[in-house]
Write a protein that binds this DNA or RNA. Sequence first.
DNA 1: TCTTTGTGCTTCGTAATTTGCAGCGCTCAC
DNA 2: GTGAGCGCTGCAAATTACGAAGCACAAAGA
Lengths: 297, 297
Amino acid sequence: MKHLQTLLLIEAVAIAGSIRKAAEDMNITSSALNRRIQGFEAEFGAPVFERLPRGVRLNPAGELLIQHIRSQKSDLERVQAQVADLSGVRRGHVSIACSQAIQPYFMPREVSEYRREHPGVTFSVHVRDRDRAEEDLRSYESDLALVFEPRHSAEFDVLISVEQPVVAVMSKSHPLATKTKLRLRDCLEFPHVVPPPAIGIRYLLDLAVGRMSQKLDPTIEADSFEFMRHYVLNGKAIGFQFPIGLDTANDDRFAFLSLPDRDVPHGKLSLLQMKGRTLPVASARFANQLALSIADL
Amino acid sequence: MKHLQTLLLIEAVAIAGSIRKAAEDMNITSSALNRRIQGFEAEFGAPVFERLPRGVRLNPAGELLIQHIRSQKSDLERVQAQVADLSGVRRGHVSIACSQAIQPYFMPREVSEYRREHPGVTFSVHVRDRDRAEEDLRSYESDLALVFEPRHSAEFDVLISVEQPVVAVMSKSHPLATKTKLRLRDCLEFPHVVPPPAIGIRYLLDLAVGRMSQKLDPTIEADSFEFMRHYVLNGKAIGFQFPIGLDTANDDRFAFLSLPDRDVPHGKLSLLQMKGRTLPVASARFANQLALSIADL
DNA sequence: TCTTTGTGCTTCGTAATTTGCAGCGCTCAC
DNA sequence: GTGAGCGCTGCAAATTACGAAGCACAAAGA
């Protein structure tokens, strides 16, 4: 879109951190780019970049502007998708950021179900911890975010939210595997595999042990749930995961035991979007489907 | 803003209904305008106007586009106002559409209170019935709407909402003026001055009489509350108004008697904005002030 | 029925704008 | 120090947009 050219160039400069680099990225000369930026700043009424010896950086006004640019870009795409939609084609793209726990079972099932109806729609699925997921929404890199324990900043709309208990995952042969009611303190007697602090489940565990006399033993910190699952198979270690990330019904190599809410607070699984944003058709529809599926959990 | 030029031209064409007229309005030749539109449609990927023998008209895609254009225009203005704001100047403009009842006392007080703090801010206050007010929001002609009994279409955010009873207004010398409890059916015995159906208070009265055996006597239908007030002074007629439109404490030429909710349903006074829209700073602040004042009613 | 008026669209020469090239002055890292 | 990298600026070339005029067409008016 031609009329966005200058705005896109500004975004490129903001990302590259230097006019010359951005000029190269956008295949024009730095002089042309430089003058366009100066021209824009003039008619905008205020500088957008602060000039540093080693390049440029957005000033506060620029931060506001870049937000506008991204929203403008994405809204135009939405309009174009809607127009394509009413000419009969069902195209579009959904980009979603979600927690690791969502990746193995839930997300693939949802995406393929959606694509059965709308084969023209493409997807980007990004694994993001809750902070990065919110960052993605803010920068319009993702339309949706499905994460545990989001910070719920006022800048987001919560489309739906459900609670899930934390489940202890261990080998079937584990001494605790036959218990009917498992407590957190039982788990802490054994070596445990926990994700890094950025992950929602770790946040809940930290909260939980914080009000106990015992301590979390962080000797095995792994950011891969796959690692965790295979690790606990070979010993007495215990891992933690949400039900949505497990195949509790079919995977009989493991014992899955929910921890009570009073021990470890249940995790809030929330579907977020940028506040007030009108999503592209495809993303909005997918969000609806997700909301229905999540409500059934 | 140069990069919006094409979009503004498209809007002008949409309004003028013809490329040549719009060209004259925008001080360019029709050929230039024509080519810009064709160029835009080409890169947009779909026609925006349908060509009629006597001019052009937006097609469905164009309707979507024009909405986008208006939203972008207003969002850019918001950004510029915010930027001006952080450079120390407190400028801006508030445009609000509101019911007639709000005009005599409430609105002037609110505006002057706001302008005591922010003298740089200018105002547009439009009298609009509830349908036109919503139309104004939709077309970004007004930032806010303060109306009775809005249709509450899902396209709006309700910032605050309070109920107000319908008050019968009559001369102090009126036979009913000394009653302590006034019923609607008493009023209907006398000639009454009612606003046209588009006005919220008439809607409530129609609702009320609809479930009674009696009928509304529409012999005196006036869309000016000023007319109504002066008319009831000179006879036995009764008028209707919400408390917010009256100076019940000080105006002793009248008797003001609230009608009970079971006779005439209370009116919902709601402050609306376009759904999901980020208002200009000035309007957002004014909306906050209004919300506080309204909550105190 | 024929004319008039108003429409969108096209052509073409020109005016305006944007671009690329080269070079300046500056700051920081080595 | 010195070189690399930065933002910025003249100037001519290239690109783009523009205005004037005219075409084909359709609806209103005489």
